[in-house]
Simulated scan of single mutants.
Amino acid sequence: MERIEHRACAGGWQDVYRHQSVTLGCAMNFAIYLPPQAEHGPVPVLYWLSGLTCTEQNFITKAGAQRYAAEHGIAIVAPDTSPRGDDVADDAAYDLGKGAGFYLNATQAPWANHYRMYDYVVTELPALIEARFPVSQARALSGHSMGGHGALVLALRNPGRYRSVSAFSPIVAPSQVPWGEKAFNAYLGPDQADWQAWDATALIAHATERLPLLVEQGLGDEFLEKQLRPTLLQTACDAVGHPLQLNLRPDYDHSYYFIASFIGEHVDWHARALHA
């Protein structure tokens, strides 16, 4: 493992590391913010999952989350959004292939060789983080857009593994919108029954843990009606009594200006669960 960035930030350190991922079969970058409290003992971890076209850089340079993490004594880990490298399958479009891993385990060629972001984020990366850094096993999840989908799905599929989960502008029902339909058909094949295991609105009905969901959605989001459709998540939660706080924010769009405006509230939400 090689540290490739090391920057003082909000009293702590914002670092980026590169390591060889066994799960993905390629070199991967991840960012980790260690608050000043980490100098005195293990701190809990918030995992942030970014959206389409992003890398580990987008969140750490645009969201301004570090100062809130420092206030609450929380580390933040932000992985890349897909496997990378010359041998990794790709597509010319922005919404499939590199930068568009969708936080699932692909089953179809040529994607299955490398696209196992679910196993990487749930298992390999936390094991590495917990072995190499002063962090505890108290974990939380958040993310944006495709990463919001990832956060919701990972939490719903792994009861007891995460203390809290939130999302900004998530793709809540990927099996019912163009982004998800394209990715799922490529990564998982045409059988839509196989898609349900990666769709938050489908998983809600069978969830064995009623972990409260915090979802932030801008009403000025250009992808709101076609790709995001948060009312589908509200309907699924209402049907089974799953706790959901859906904040609909007038005027805000899909950008990191939206995330930066409310990230402090989300870090506070996670801090209360992580320190409970």
Rank of each mutant, 00 (worst) to 15 (best):
C9I: 05
Y103S: 09
A167N: 09
H6Q: 01
F102L: 03
L203H: 02
P44Y: 11
A167C: 12
L219N: 08
Y94N: 14
F102P: 04
T201G: 06
H254S: 01
P42Q: 07
Q196L: 11
G189C: 08
T201E: 05
G101R: 07
G51W: 02
G180E: 00
P42N: 10
R84P: 05
I32Y: 02
Y252P: 00
Q37H: 13
G150C: 08
V267C: 04
W13K: 03
R132W: 00
T231N: 14
A92W: 15
V45G: 00
A155D: 06
V267N: 05
Q192Y: 05
P35N: 09
P178E: 14
E56I: 00
V43I: 11
W195N: 07
L154P: 03
I76N: 00
A109E: 13
A100R: 11
N247A: 09
N247I: 15
I204Q: 04
V88W: 13
R163D: 07
F258I: 03
N247T: 14
A8G: 07
G97P: 13
L152W: 03
I259N: 02
A205V: 06
H270V: 01
Y187N: 05
E216M: 15
T231Y: 13
D268M: 14
R67T: 15
P83F: 04
N105V: 10
I129L: 08
D87C: 13
V165E: 10
A112M: 14
P212V: 00
P170H: 07
L34G: 08
S175Y: 00
A236S: 09
Y120V: 04
Q176R: 15
H242P: 13
H144L: 14
A27E: 15
Y187F: 11
